[in-house]
């Protein structure tokens, strides 16, 4: 009842694992959704060279 906390790595791994998963996952979604190609699909008016389907 006087030493430092033992066996804490499980919590550390959980916190870092969740944090990196959320941040990387969110970054992937945010970057994919903001690619020039994705934006011209969303709004063909923004880039006359890209929106061939519209």
């Amino acid at each position: 009842m006087t030493g430092m906390i033992q066996g804490g790595w499980g919590y550390v791994v959980a916190v870092y694992g969740i944090s990196w998963a959320v941040l990387l996952g969110y970054a992937l979604v945010a970057l994919r959704g903001s690619r020039p190609a994705a934006l011209s699909a969303l709004d063909p008016g923004t880039d006359p060279n890209a929106g061939s389907d519209a």
């Binding site: 969110y26 945010a30 959704g33 903001s34 934006l39 969303l42 709004d43 923004t46």
Partner: peptide, 20 residues
């Protein structure tokens, strides 16, 4: 720095959505 990148990316998407 990561957060700045994320905000810019989300801003781009939102701007295009509003323009459309």
């Amino acid at each position: 720095v990561l957060s700045i990148g994320l905000v810019i990316a989300r801003w781009r998407t939102e701007t295009a959505r509003l323009a459309a």
